[in-house]
Design a binder for these strands. Sequence first.
DNA 1: ATCTAATTTAGAATTATTCTTATTTGATAA
DNA 2: TTATCAAATAAGAATAATTCTAAATTAGAT
Lengths: 140, 140
Amino acid sequence: MKKIIAKYRKRDFKLTPQRLAILKYLDGNTSHPTADDIFTNIKKAYPTVSFATVYNTLQALKEKGEILEVTIDYEKRHYDPNIAPHHHIICTECNKISDVFKDYSDSLMLPNEILKEFKTIRNHIDFYGICKECQKERGD
Amino acid sequence: MKKIIAKYRKRDFKLTPQRLAILKYLDGNTSHPTADDIFTNIKKAYPTVSFATVYNTLQALKEKGEILEVTIDYEKRHYDPNIAPHHHIICTECNKISDVFKDYSDSLMLPNEILKEFKTIRNHIDFYGICKECQKERGD
DNA sequence: ATCTAATTTAGAATTATTCTTATTTGATAA
DNA sequence: TTATCAAATAAGAATAATTCTAAATTAGAT
Ligand SMILES: [Mn+2]
Ligand SMILES: [Mn+2]
Ligand SMILES: [Zn+2]
Ligand SMILES: [Zn+2]
């Protein structure tokens, strides 16, 4: 908490109670929440908080490079406070998104026709699978 | 064209002129168009076509497994008539999406903690880079 | 304590997608 | 060929996520 405050004080980022609640909720969060998830959570402590604040804050954090948008769900945007490069595995039954920490870059040589056309920057893998809970429910 | 008609006649898929226009537009299309792209295009030949028809047709084709949704752009959904497994590379400047035909599955061994939790089904890689045209524009 | 630019808020606006319903039509079979 | 009818179309309303607006509040600097 103190650490979070110190970190953002330096960075032209005014710390309001609402923002602190968002930062606290995101800190170490591996659930890949949506704006609505965040809104619902901080509403408990700040019942008058508005959606605009959540979106504004996410926007600001994104611009500062403190969070990333996860492009997996075309219904809602998900946010990831873990900005270290990593991949995801999504359960096709319950849509849970889990982190995959492994760098595959060395194995991902692109075909020549692509190398001719693109200067590559990075890669992100979406694995799809069925999580343990959903396997149980299906009786696999 | 004849091929398309024959293919869908068999499959409980009524062939209307609008649908044929959509199918024709999608056939072999590697541009990963949005519903709006498709709408704009077929409007030329069918000025009274409605958005609902485009969405209905895409929905039907998706359910038949004839097209895939590309989960890359969180503003609009993109559609891909190429249902063969393949990956994508996206230009971070102009957002062009190109196909990458190469199977990396053998290299993509998941970490053990994930293997314990998930039964894996498939993988999809999003590469990010800068396309030739955009490199030129930036003077790289 | 004062000041000010940044932030918050409520609600309106926007945009992609889905839904509704009356009308039309493709495909089948008489 | 024509009648039939389930399925498809079209226009526009509804929905839902996100963005915008503008007035009021406030964090942090002086
Ligand atoms: Mn993650
Ligand atoms: Mn493709
Ligand atoms: Zn699951
Ligand atoms: Zn480009």
